[in-house]
């Protein structure tokens, strides 16, 4: 299992009720269910991935987070996870508000557009950056709203989302992001992981 999922898993206490939005093939869901006794649910847009989740015995609902989060009642989960999907929504702010409606805590991860390799790619090659976390070309990327770690921190401040934990991931190494190291983390990290509380 990838490091990102390990970190997410460590942020969640045992026996909680968790919704994984954009749960993919169910790898994280299965880990949480098997190792932390989590009452897990998944929402996934790809039919192939839904089939993979079903084959793992995981309760997954085929749907689009931008429309189908509405169906979950207020505070029906302890945690909601959104892994590297926020940038693909038309309205990320609305989605985060909805995440914080259905759960008290949201774990949101973003591929960092401020990562130095991304910056160098655009600076030197002059074409849209393609990296491990951003593998698509400009014309087929699902990402509508790319942002950097710094963008997300500023956005959260502006929208009054309470960032309870801010973590940076670079080559399997995790570190805390704070006011004094924000520019540095924004330059050297591939991924930002945020625990947002209501």
């Amino acid at each position: 299992m990838k490091k990102e999922f390990q970190i997410i898993s460590e942020l969640i206490e045992v026996n909680k009720r968790v919704l994984d939005v954009g749960c993919g093939d169910g790898t994280l869901m299965k880990h949480l269910h098997d190792n932390k006794n989590i009452d897990i649910r998944g929402l996934e847009i790809s039919k192939d991935n839904v089939q993979k989740c079903i084959a793992k015995g995981l309760p997954v609902i085929e749907g689009n987070a931008e429309k189908d989060l509405e169906q979950f009642p207020d505070s029906s989960f302890d945690y909601v996870i959104l892994s590297q999907t926020l940038q693909a929504f038309y309205n990320p702010e609305k989605v985060i508000n909805n995440l914080l409606r259905v759960a008290n805590k949201a774990i949101v991860t973003i591929p960092n557009f401020g990562y130095w390799k991304v910056r160098i790619h655009l600076l030197l090659k002059g074409t849209m950056p393609i990296t491990k976390n951003l593998p698509n070309e400009w014309f087929n990327t699902p990402n509508l709203h790319m942002c950097s770690i710094k963008d997300f921190v500023n956005f959260s401040k502006q929208k009054k989302f309470n960032l309870f934990r801010s973590l940076a991931l670079h080559q399997e190494k995790v570190s805390e992001i704070n006011k004094s190291n924000l520019n540095l983390k924004n330059f050297f990290s591939e991924l930002g992981i945020f625990l947002i509380e209501k």
């Binding site: 649910r41 039919k47 089939q51 079903i54 309760p59 997954v60 609902i61 169906q71 979950f72 029906s76």
Partner: peptide, 21 residues
Amino acid sequence: NKEIVIALNAAGADVGFIEII
């Protein structure tokens, strides 16, 4: 069919759903 899924979610039930093409 989704109305049923929504009702089950509202009840906190264990529910999976797929639409087949």
